[in-house]
Design a protein around this nucleic acid. Structure first.
Length: 274
DNA sequence: CGTTACCTGAAA
DNA sequence: TTTCAGGTAACG
C-alpha cells in the first residue's frame, strides 16, 4: 500500500510527537500474526519499555524510529499498515494489531488489515534496509544515476522501477504514474530508453513524488497519515485506477494489463507499445 | 527473471 | 464464488 509519499506523510505527522517521549508499555492484539516476528512479544515489550524516541527517519518505504542510545525500531507498512497517534479515549481504530503507549498519554496505534507489516528492534538499523537503492528525492539523485541503473537491462522498465535496489520508494501507483507522465510504455526494455526518455522519467518520478507528498499520499482504501487523515493524491491520478476512463492528456481510453505481476495502467496513445 | 506465498476483506 | 489489492521474500 504505502509507497514513499505515504510513508513520508507518516514521518512528518509523527516526528515531533514522539521525539523525547518515553515508552511506558506495548500491547498486542490477541490472535493472528504480529508485526514483531524475530522475538516474542513479551520480550519485545520488555526491551522497548522505558526507552526514549529520538528522530523519526524515512528511508525508501521504511520508517526508522531512533531510540536514545543508538538502536531503533524499524517499521515497514507493507500493504495495509498504518501508524497513527491517538489519545486513549479516541474511538478504536479497525484492525489495530499493536499499541505503543507513551509517557504523555498518547497511543501509537498500529493498524494492519492484512498483517503484512513488520517491526524490527535492532541495534543496527541500517542493516534492516541495507540493499536499498538511492532516494529519488535526494540531492544526489541525477539522470546519470537513473541511467546507470537501467543500462544493459532487458527487464521491463516497470519491473526495474519497482526493484527497491535500483531506486528506493516507488511502488505500483507511482511507477505507473511516472511512466505515463514520461510517455514510456511499462514493457519497454529498461536498457532501451533514450537519453530524452530517461530525462523525462527522472523528472516525472521526482515531480510526482513531491506532489504526492503535498497531497499526503494516495488513499485508495487503507492509507491514512499519522493523524488518521486520508490523503488526496488519488484525485490526481492520470492512469492508476482509471481503466476505461479517458486520458486527462489526450482523451484516449486508459487500459489495464499485467506487467511484472502487477496491475498496470497505461494510455495507449501517450505510451506507445514497444 | 516471473510466479507464489504471506493475510484479510471488498468488490465483481 | 472468484478475483483483486499500495509490498516483498522465497521460490524455480
Amino acid at each position: 500500500m504505502p509507497e514513499l509519499p505515504e510513508v513520508e506523510t507518516t514521518r512528518r505527522d509523527l516526528a515531533e510527537r514522539i521525539r523525547g517521549r518515553a515508552v511506558t508499555g506495548v500491547s498486542f492484539a490477541d490472535g493472528g500474526p504480529l508485526p514483531v516476528r524475530d522475538m516474542e512479544p513479551e520480550a519485545f515489550a520488555a526491551a522497548i519499555r522505558g526507552r526514549v524516541f529520538g528522530e523519526l527517519e524515512r528511508r525508501g518505504k521504511y520508517l526508522i524510529a531512533h531510540l536514545e542510545g543508538g538502536d531503533a525500531l524499524v517499521l515497514h507498512r507493507r500493504m495495509t499498515g498504518n501508524l497513527l497517534s491517538r489519545r486513549p479515549d479516541d474511538p478504536p481504530d479497525a484492525h489495530t494489531r499493536a499499541i505503543i503507549h507513551l509517557d504523555d498519554g498518547a497511543e501509537l496505534r498500529w493498524t494492519d488489515l492484512r498483517r503484512f507489516g513488520r517491526w524490527q528492534l535492532t541495534t543496527d538499523p541500517a542493516s534492516a534496509y541495507s540493499g536499498l537503492g538511492p532516494e529519488p528525492l535526494g540531492d544526489a539523485w541525477f539522470v546519470a544515476d537513473l541511467a546507470a541503473a537501467l543500462r544493459g537491462r532487458a527487464a521491463p522498465i516497470k519491473a526495474v522501477l519497482l526493484d527497491q535496489r535500483r531506486v528506493a520508494g516507488l511502488g505500483n501507483i507511482y511507477a505507473d504514474e511516472s511512466l505515463h507522465q514520461a510517455r514510456i510504455h511499462p514493457l519497454r526494455p529498461a536498457g532501451s530508453l533514450t537519453d530524452a526518455e530517461m530525462t523525462r522519467l527522472h523528472q516525472a518520478i521526482r515531480s510526482i513524488l513531491l506532489l504526492a507528498i503535498e497531497q499526503q499520499g494516495s488513499s485508495m482504501r487503507d492509507h491514512v497519515g499519522g493523524l488518521g487523515q486520508r490523503g488526496t493524491m488519488q484525485e490526481r491520478w492520470h492512469v492508476y485506477g482509471r481503466a476505461g476512463q479517458t486520458c486527462r492528456s489526450c482523451g484516449a481510453v486508459i487500459e489495464k494489463s499485467r506487467v511484472a505481476g502487477r496491475g498496470t495502467h497505461i494510455c495507449p496513445d501517450c505510451q506507445p507499445s514497444p
